[in-house]
Structures are given as C-alpha cells and as structure tokens.
Write a protein that binds this DNA or RNA. Sequence first.
DNA 1: TGTTAATATATCGCGCACGATATAAATTCA
DNA 2: TGAATTTATATCGTGCGCGATATATTAACA
Lengths: 145, 145
Amino acid sequence: MEQLKLENQICFPFYAISRLITRAYQPYLEKLGITYPQYLVLLVLWEKDGLAVQDISEKLILNTNTLTPLLKRMETMGLVKRQKAKEDERKVVIHLTREGKALQAAAASVPLKLLENMGDMAVDLDELVGMRDKIQEWIGCMGNK
Amino acid sequence: MEQLKLENQICFPFYAISRLITRAYQPYLEKLGITYPQYLVLLVLWEKDGLAVQDISEKLILNTNTLTPLLKRMETMGLVKRQKAKEDERKVVIHLTREGKALQAAAASVPLKLLENMGDMAVDLDELVGMRDKIQEWIGCMGNK
DNA sequence: TGTTAATATATCGCGCACGATATAAATTCA
DNA sequence: TGAATTTATATCGTGCGCGATATATTAACA
C-alpha cells in the first residue's frame, strides 16, 4: 500500500507546516496578548475597518460559527466593538477600538521577525513567495466550490 | 503598513490551504467513520504497528497531550489497543485491532480520490509534489528546534 | 543504595474549527 | 400584503491542538 505511507502523502506536509508556522508566531503574538486567528482578524480590520462578520469570514475562509465566539472574545479584550448594521439588521459590523488600532504599531515588526526565523532555517524567500502565490491560486479555485 | 496586508502575508495561505485540504478529505473519511488526525495515526500504524505514543508524536509532529485523548477515542471506537510496554512501563504501545487493520483496504482509494479533486481545480501534480518536497525539507529544519 | 534528574504519558483548561441547527431580519413573489 | 424563501449571525456539541502541570517509571550518580 505505497500510497498510504506517510512520507508519500501529498497533504500531510501542508497540515504539519501550518501548525509549525502557528507555533513560530506564538512568542511574538503572546507579547501582544493575541492568538494567531485573532491576529488574522486584526490584519483584515487594520486594512479596512467596519467589516461585517461575513466579510471577515470570506477573507479568512473561516465559518461564522468560528468567528462569532472569536470576535466576542476580542470584544471582551477591548480590541473590537460589535454592533448591528443600521441598513441591514441581520449583519453585525466589527469596528476596531482605539486599543485595537493602537496594536497595529506594535504588530508592525511581526512579519519581519517571522521571516528572520525562516532565514535561520535555510528557507529561501523567493521559493517561499513562489509557493505562496501558487497556494493562493489554488485557494481561489477551492474557495469557490 | 504594507507588510500587514492580508494578501502580502507569507504564512496565511499555508494556514488556509491546510483547512481546505482537511475539508476535502472529510467526505471520504466520514464514510470510514474517522477524522483527518485519526486517519494520520492509522497511516502511521498501518506502516508499522505497535509504536509508542512518542513515536507517533514525532512522526505526526503532534504533542502527546493531543494524541493521548485522540488515541483513547480510537480505542473506544475499537480501532486500536493501548497497553503499557513491558520493557519500559512509562511507554504506552499502540496496536491496531483487527478492525483497525481491516480499515486499510477501505482507505486505499482515498489518496487517489483526493488527487482527482485537485485535478478538478487545475492543480498540477508535479507542482504539488515539488511543493511537498520543499515543505518536507523545511519541516526537517523546524521540527528539530 | 538512596536521592536526584530525566523521560513518557496523562490531566486540565482554553481557544479554535466546523457540522448541525436555531433565530431573526430581509427579500421574493403569489 | 402576506406567506415562503433566502440571508446573516448565533448556539450547541464534538474533536482537535497545545501550554502548563501532575504522575509514574527509569536512569544517573553521589
């Protein structure tokens, strides 16, 4: 059963590297008091504040039943404010608080620190970027299923 | 803050594709009555039965505090048997049951079905394999930290 | 040999991640 | 308009995933 050997699996490395990456982020995000999924939500909101839950869901490819409790935790932490949209009361719009906005400055150095970590592991940046672009392409296909 | 835009993130695509891959496996694994991490444990045991928790932990890069409850669930399901090793009673050795072994035949077609899914999404197999090899190399570095 | 340190697994707590289902608001259309 | 459908979010239950800590067994060594 050659196709069932772990080393021949196509998908396992993606699963494993994803967890290793999250672990690599952790020391830096811990200093900011946030988790990796919370960091992703902040990235999205720093880029465009006042998005609905659905918008964040599409950008991060996370179901709303993952995001709702996550956003509530972030509200409790004082990072965001959740409120019903006036033009459509089904929607819940997420706004950054002053504190949520302030965190952006502290987070600015995180991506570079991660890249330095990668450098230590003999990972070539160009290869990394090439891989990222390919994966983004696939995600474009898979997401629209 | 160009480096904090989601589309410029290097690591987010790995996180996203990992979850999309797990979702892609789900319909096939559901028929076998198992989850993706449970499938990975079975892959390892089908290749070499009677491994200790620690061995499985290293191969799958999962902490034992993830594996212990997972293996207990698999024991409850009748797929594996957990027992203390005679030569070292700290170790817990995992053996496949008859049922756990029998599942291998049913799982044999899973990898091909996944690849067919990828094919539908205009994903080139050679690219996929190339990327896998790069990631495996990279895991080799990160894992030994 | 007796004490200390290292190793292997288990337990606890929390935060995702998601399928299934519920609820409420908006839209459609008979 | 009013009932049926769709859309947006929330709730519930289960299974990871992992940091912190506990427990038991073995190894090391004074």
